[in-house]
Design a protein around this nucleic acid. Structure first.
Length: 375
RNA sequence: GGAGGCUUAGCGAAGCGGCCAAACGCAGCUGACUGUAAAUCAGUUCCUUCGGGUUCGGUGGUUCGAAUCCACCAGCCUCCA
């Protein structure tokens, strides 16, 4: 069957593995590499769909586990799908709930069949299996849906990583076999923990299945940067060049630039929005905490080079005031800034790739914006 | 005029003889956050040359030892005439 998305590589950088491309989905096309803001509960926290669009984001994420719990996929189906439900007309990707196998570890039991959660809202039992995860995602109706996997914690024992990765592979085949909507693309997820042989095995096994794109999961969960880097190196050479590659859950600049440099096209993260809600803002000088006393009388914008609406109109002193007063507008304005700031850096990366100077660009960005502290 | 109660760190409020530089909340200051159980979480807030030094309305006393007991003074509150 023809893929419901199309992905065309526009330019392969000559100075690195980085590449630019165009991803066409049922809800529009987006340039890659791209950063995808996370909107777990069918909302990028504090932002309206209009604001998300204005920021220049291509795809946004949502989450199967959370939406299945509330409001329930039946409600989203009744609404006519997630796009109509939340009034966002751009492309949407849903995560399968695999990350919640990791993040809600205390409340869950994993078996070959799938995962049983004691859900975090009222403690009721809830099951996710590959079949259920795909079916729920079909009901939600996103453009790109994800295979159901287990995000292995870091660090993990080799034996556990191996058995988990093999199980994720078996789950992948079941995901493929489960019907989805005709407009939906399905991405497989490479696991393997920090072990190169497992990453390779997982990549080969996953790409043997007819997925529309390939994600690398189990990253940015506490592993050091060199480990992250080698996780990618172990997997990416085994991914097909012509299909989109997605590293899940990375949001700091150093990780993003590392991934782009290795030929990754998509990434998502809660980091910019969460940091914004907590008063941590991205600037050319690195991260600042807007609540700090030094910004009390600082009537300059967060970052004078930023073109976001927050930086065009509002001062650090005002944002500090909003933050300390726990005013909603502060969270919104700062979320707009962090997202736009990050997306603009990725836009810059696209230009640099097409001019075959990505390495130089990445190095300059990291020098200017700080080090591994990232954002 | 009479009876009783209260006064603790920036604010509110525990403590009622030693384990009290004094719980807790707020406010303040700082840090963290990476496929969102996160408008959350953690640290910190008398002074210090890190040995210690000054605190619990004020003064004096009892005691080996007082924020805690007693006396007087000051301020505030309630009830009865």
């Amino acid at each position: 069957m023809a893929s419901p998305i199309s992905f065309k590589i526009k330019h392969q950088s000559k100075d690195s593995l980085a590449r630019t491309g165009l991803l066409k989905t049922h809800h529009g096309e987006v340039k890659t590499p791209m950063f995808m803001p996370v909107g777990t509960l069918a909302t990028v926290k504090s932002l309206s769909p209009e604001e998300i669009t204005e920021i220049g984001s291509g795809v946004i994420l949502s989450n199967t586990y959370h939406l299945a719990l509330r409001p329930g996929t039946d409600i989203i189906q009744l609404a006519g799908g997630i796009h109509r439900f939340m009034q966002y007309s751009g492309p949407i990707l849903t995560d399968s709930g695999g990350f919640q196998v990791f993040s809600l570890a205390k409340n869950r039991v994993i078996t070959e069949e799938g995962v049983t959660f004691r859900n975090h809202l009222n403690g009721d039992l809830m099951s996710l299996t590959p079949e259920i995860a795909i079916t729920k995602q079909k009901e939600i109706g996103a453009d790109i849906i994800m295979a159901f996997d287990e995000c292995i914690p870091f660090p993990a024992e080799y034996a556990y990583a191996k058995s988990s990765t093999e199980r994720t592979l078996r789950w992948a085949a079941r995901c493929i076999a489960t019907p989805r909507a005709s407009h939906q693309a399905l991405f497989g997820i490479v696991q393997g923990g920090e072990f190169a042989d497992l990453r390779e095995m997982s990549a080969k096994g996953t790409t043997a299945l007819p997925f529309d794109g390939f994600a690398i999961g189990g990253t940015s969960i506490g592993e050091p940067k060199p480990v992250f880097s080698s996780m990618l190196k172990a997997a990416i050479p085994h991914l097909p060049l012509e299909k989109p590659r997605y590293v899940m859950g990375i949001g700091s600049l150093d990780y993003i630039l590392e991934a782009i440099g290795q030929g990754v096209d998509m990434f998502d993260c809660v980091l910019p929005t969460r940091l914004a809600r907590h008063g941590a803002l991205m600037t050319r000088q690195g991260r600042i905490n807007i609540k700090d006393g030094e910004y009390e009388k600082d009537f300059s914008p967060i970052d004078s080079s930023c073109d976001c609406t927050t930086c065009k109109r509002y001062t650090r002193a005002y944002l500090r005031h909003l933050y300390r007063s726990d005013e909603l507008l502060g969270k919104r304005l700062m979320s707009i800034h962090n997202l736009r700031f990050l997306i603009k850096i990725v836009e810059g990366a696209r230009v640099a790739i097409e001019e075959d100077r990505f390495q130089d660009y990445a190095q300059k960005v990291l020098e200017t914006y700080g080090d591994d502290r990232g954002f």
